[in-house]
Design a protein around this nucleic acid. Structure first.
Lengths: 340, 340
DNA sequence: ACTTATGAGTAAAACGTTTTACCTAATAAA
DNA sequence: TTTATTAGGTAAAACGTTTTACTCATAAGT
């Protein structure tokens, strides 16, 4: 068996309390005993048993990562990448990350993520859209959490956001600079707070360039279903049939934008020559597409790291006033928007 | 605070031992007390504290998932998907999955995955290529593990494999049936056991159809570097320049195959009309490519689930004789091989 | 010279379970 | 009737840490 703290204490000729103190530095020890104990620890290759430590401190050393079932699909690697960011930051702070998903039809009593039931996490990162009933329940349990890319009206939760508004605004300005005149918008989930901000960025950028509101209205294809490439295709086809003068389309996610490209090509028109296309997210597929998709890159790893760091703060000071961190996005210009 | 087992015992008028027994069913209790205790448990919404249980049972309830640093890249979502499969199966068995990566230059004393040090997992799933020094160390620690898509010469480790050989063999036969005459192979990592089997499947299928060995030799572009799309492009270009008669190329992974397609197109030839292309893995990008890539689909979720189940067996009976499970792959026919 | 701090260390309690060893009463076997 | 056996239950030990409260020196402040 692996050595325990008792073995160390015995061999070093001190009490187990002293060993613990050396380990955690929570009190004073003389330099000599400290050295002696540390030598023995190294010699016997001792490592404290996780579960014993957890029981004694009444903490778990784990954080949870919750993601909605629907984002768990094959194509949706976006959230996997954020996960790796969280994992990376957690590792550096000696936390483990436990993952679970939550069903669309979520019932707090029934479908509670398992690690809440057995009090097995100290805090939670919540990725994307999440039923408010779950958030309410977390508040009731007094378990710290941070939201990523989501927020709730009238509730000041801790969260990490991307700069949806300014990112989109900037992308539209770039299209105008490129000489595009009639810029359309295609996207689903219009009631999602982040998507709504993207739409507002689109609208405000055009308004700032004196495009009349009713034109913007006509060029907007906004629906309230999941953002799939099929919806993108559908939106592009409908818009272009009604308004052949459209020469650029902003898709509210890369999935949408990739669908948009397909729609444009289906109508026999060329990207980017006839119509430029820009997406949002920068998922891996986007740089493999033909043409490669211009998009707003979300720094997925950083998002994960920031989420963990914020969570760590909240876990340390549970009644810290709530905090929102907005990360910038970067316009990645590729073939779908630029006639070289 | 959440109720503890003592609260339950007091309220139900029994000892804590009885509550524990009801919880775990490790001994006999009368139906009446059982019901009574269960009622109290439900009423107070009691859930045993994970860490206490872990300390008492001297198990962790966790398994580790180790993946090599290099597979951790943006594009390599293959292993992420397997991870979700493991996670799913683990969840159904009330295990948590802890993730870590291992550096290329791995030094057992220095870079030991953290969850080995603190004895925080009961077993480990190892994804893909892994330094043998780590495997040796795991054996020394007597910690159960299973390999996925990897094996070691002369060592009968527990593992989950895909049917690399027959999958490739079948794909080559399919190409022959389609009337392709000169089928080439492009791939890196030729010393990786799984890749080697793919190559053998390719070679044997051709030999079985009386293709002379020296032709096979000439049509093989085998190198020993990572499988990137750049290598695929490079291989395709080299082969086609020397042997313009080649009318089909098998890429040993989808990344390779996607690069191959790019190479073919760069030379001004058409896929699939002039040259058919088949890959292996079925990564998400493959179905977005133009043309869509024909490939051998590895059932990633199932692989993960099987890996967990095998690990569970090994954890239960540590000296079980070692076991290899080979999962079939499925030929997914798409545009890159079929002139409709 | 007398309190008061301070420094270094420890014994023992606490954390919340599981498990062992033992007890009692009831039933079955002889 | 006596003796095993079984069923149902429990007290207490064990798991390996951290933390609290306490001791005993020695140093510092009056």
């Amino acid at each position: 068996m692996s050595p325990t703290i008792k073995d160390i204490a015995k061999k070093a000729g001190v009490s187990i309390a002293t060993v613990s103190i050396v380990l955690n530095g929570k009190a004073k020890v003389s330099a000599t005993t400290k050295e002696k104990v540390e030598a023995v620890i190294k010699e016997m290759d001792y490592h404290p048993l996780h579960s014993a430590r957890r029981l004694a401190t009444q903490t778990t050393g784990n954080i949870g990562y919750i993601i909605w079932d629907g984002y768990f699909s094959e194509a949706e690697m976006f959230y996997s990448q954020v996960f790796w960011g969280v994992e990376y930051a957690a590792r550096n702070n000696d936390y483990y990350v436990l993952v679970t998903t939550v069903k669309e039809k979520f019932n707090p009593k029934e479908d509670l993520p398992r690690f809440l039931r057995s009090r097995v996490v100290d805090g939670i990162v919540i990725m994307g859209k999440m039923p408010t009933s779950l958030l309410d329940y977390l508040e009731y349990l007094k378990i710290p959490f941070v939201l990523v890319d989501f927020e709730v009206q009238r509730k000041a939760y801790n969260s990490i956001q991307f700069d949806n508004y300014n990112g989109t605004y900037g992308a539209i300005e770039y299209l105008l600079q490129q000489g595009r005149k009639n810029i359309a918008y295609v996207g689903g989930l219009i009631n999602h707070p982040s998507i709504r901000k993207r739409y507002n960025g689109y609208r405000d950028a055009l308004e700032a360039h004196n495009i009349p509101a009713e034109i913007i209205q006509k060029f907007s294809y906004c629906v309230d279903v999941e953002n799939t490439s099929e919806i993108g295709t559908e939106g592009a086809v409908q818009l272009l049939k009604k308004h052949p003068e459209i020469d650029a389309i902003f898709g509210c996610t890369d999935h949408i934008a990739l669908g948009v490209i397909e729609g444009i090509q289906k109508l026999g028109r060329s990207v980017p020559k006839d119509v430029a296309v820009i997406g949002f997210d920068d998922i891996p597929i986007s740089s493999y597409n033909k043409p490669k998709l211009t998009t707003l890159r979300v720094p997925k790893m950083s998002v994960g790291k920031e989420a963990f760091n914020l969570l760590l703060d909240v876990m340390k000071k549970p009644d810290m006033k709530s905090h929102t961190r907005i990360l910038p996005v970067e316009l990645i210009i590729r073939g779908s928007s630029q006639c070289n």
